[in-house]
């Protein structure tokens, strides 16, 4: 499994000393597929690598620097669009890590801008964004109704000129999910960062990242999420984190994420059976960058939807998706 090679190198970069060309090819393919190539490049900064490898790492670093710059620009644009609304705009995920200068942001791929705003301000936020040039991505009325009725965010919007997406969240998990993190408390305790923009508190950043990885997602891109968590954890006081996670109803998820982060990127941990399955899912990537263990991957896709929606609703959702030719991966 080349994902296993990737996490070994992220844990201990000196391991690359043993790699031949084939090993490098497998490592680079897995790192790209997991969107960890920028992180890998930073980890290998002070390590001797073969001639053909250095330019690839330099390119990856340059790409992530540009991603960070663009993410901050999108945050600036959203802030300007919402100027005068009196709404506290909280940056989430990659953009927040970069804005706050956190280690989790170093070399990270970012992509869409994710923001959190209070639920009762959504109509005003939506209007302000549309006035500033964002528009809906999906025309499909089923998807639109689905997002509005059940999800934790507006349907995705894209800026008509800059071609960049924004996801506006009003809570952390879908309204159908069994856990209901306290989004209002997250917003209230957010900390100001630049030009009137906010990021979540140290503990909430971790809880939010964990919620996305374990309670919401099908763990696609999970190695990158777990790397974020691994980088965020040292900043938090363990007792404060436990208390905050309990408040949000995600204590067991945060504990599992800590075990997984320690097992995969840290000094090891004692894993439960369920942890082992999750680890197998996270490491399901071969030396050509393909997802291996298809059945396990599909099981996680099903599980993620089951976690978010009661079964009958899930059936209706999957049926609608499949009829339109959608398949997981």
């Amino acid at each position: 499994m080349s994902a296993a090679l990737l996490v070994r190198v992220l844990r201990d970069p000196a391991q690359v000393g043993r790699l031949d060309a084939d090993g490098w090819n497998r490592l680079l393919a897995a790192a790209r597929a997991e969107r960890l190539i920028g992180t890998l490049a930073f980890r290998l900064d002070d390590i001797a690598v073969p001639d053909g490898v250095r330019p690839i790492l330099t390119d990856a670093k340059r790409d992530t620097a540009r991603e960070a710059q663009q993410a901050l620009w999108e945050a600036d644009r959203a802030g300007q669009a919402m100027r005068g609304l009196g709404v506290r705009l909280v940056l989430l995920k990659g953009t927040a890590y970069v804005a706050a200068g956190l280690r989790a942001g170093q070399g990270r791929f970012i992509g869409d801008l994710d923001i959190l705003v209070p639920r009762d301000t959504m109509p005003a936020v939506e209007r302000a964004l549309i006035a500033a040039g964002w528009e809906w991505v999906k025309e499909d009325p089923y998807d639109d109704a689905y997002y509005r009725q059940w999800m934790h965010e507006l349907p995705p919007m894209i800026h008509v000129e800059r071609d960049r997406m924004i996801d506006v969240h009003h809570t952390v998990l879908p309204l159908t999910a069994r856990q209901t993190p306290d989004a209002a408390a997250m917003i209230a305790d957010a900390v100001p960062i630049i030009n009137g923009l906010y990021v979540l508190s140290t503990e909430d950043r971790i809880v939010h990242s964990v919620a996305h990885m374990l309670a919401d997602g099908d763990m696609q891109g999970g190695l990158r999420n777990l790397w974020d968590i691994h980088c965020l954890l040292p900043d938090a006081d363990p007792a404060a984190l436990e208390a905050r996670a309990t408040h949000h109803g995600l204590a067991s998820h945060v504990r599992q994420a800590r075990r997984l982060a320690a097992a995969i990127y840290g000094d090891g941990a004692c894993l439960t059976l369920w942890d082992r399955l999750a680890r197998a899912r996270l490491l399901a990537r071969n030396g050509w960058g393909q997802e291996s263990r298809k059945l396990l991957v599909f099981a996680f896709y099903l599980r993620s939807h089951w976690l978010r929606m009661p079964p009958l609703m899930l059936l209706r959702h999957l049926w609608t998706k499949w009829r339109k030719g959608h398949r997981p991966q």
Binding site: A21, W24, L28, A29, R32, G52, I56, G289
Partner: peptide, 29 residues
């Protein structure tokens, strides 16, 4: 034996399509 800048994959669109009316999905890094 060189380290490649890019990986290209020609893979079946799904498992069956490797042999049955083979159909290539082009992807890679």
């Amino acid at each position: 034996g060189a380290v490649a800048d890019f990986t290209v994959r020609l893979q079946p669109t799904n498992l069956l399509r490797r042999v049955l009316r083979p159909s290539i999905f082009i992807t890679g890094d």
